[in-house]
């Protein structure tokens, strides 16, 4: 039915500067995925990089999704929004400012606050790696005209 194993996903630029601190989760995850692409290395000096990945916003929100009959929270919805842009050496947009978001829901119980706190962390990590995958796919789709 036409499916074939996915080939390597080279990025069309040799060096990239990542605009997220190397101590932040997002920064660590992006650097690791870019390194495994095999075609691109992350450089610390923005000026020396062929392209610059700018993280314009990285927001996490927790909203009440539904309430119990007693007016207490039954479900929370976690939303993570990342707004990013890719510019080349000259500063023009290879990827215009784009916002991608991920949503996860989980049931909440006030009597299991500690347990739910860890579930929240697991969901945030899952959303983050989902968004990083989406960013990597968008980076792979960038073809710089020579």
């Amino acid at each position: 039915c036409g499916f074939r194993l996915r080939g390597p996903q080279p990025l069309d630029f040799a060096t990239i500067h990542v605009g997220a601190s190397q101590y932040s989760d997002l920064g660590i995850s992006l650097r690791r995925h870019i390194a495994t692409s095999g075609s691109t290395t992350v450089v610390d000096d923005p000026a020396a990089a062929d392209v610059k990945l700018q993280i314009l916003a990285n927001e996490r929100e927790r909203e009440i999704l539904s309430l119990t009959g007693a007016g207490k929270v039954r479900e929370y919805q976690l939303v993570q929004r990342i707004r990013f842009r890719l510019v080349d050496k000259g500063g023009s947009d290879l990827i215009p400012p784009t916002t991608i978001l991920a949503r996860r829901e989980y049931t909440f119980d006030d009597s299991q606050v500690l347990g739910k706190e860890q579930e929240e962390n697991l969901l945030y990590n899952d959303m983050q790696s989902d968004l990083v995958m989406q960013i990597m796919r968008r980076l792979a789709a960038v073809h710089r005209n020579p």
Binding site: E105, Y106, L114, G115, E119, L122
Partner: peptide, 13 residues
Amino acid sequence: IFDTSRYDFGFAQ
């Protein structure tokens, strides 16, 4: 049971 609860049954979990 100090800080344990059961995960939801979700794709992440």
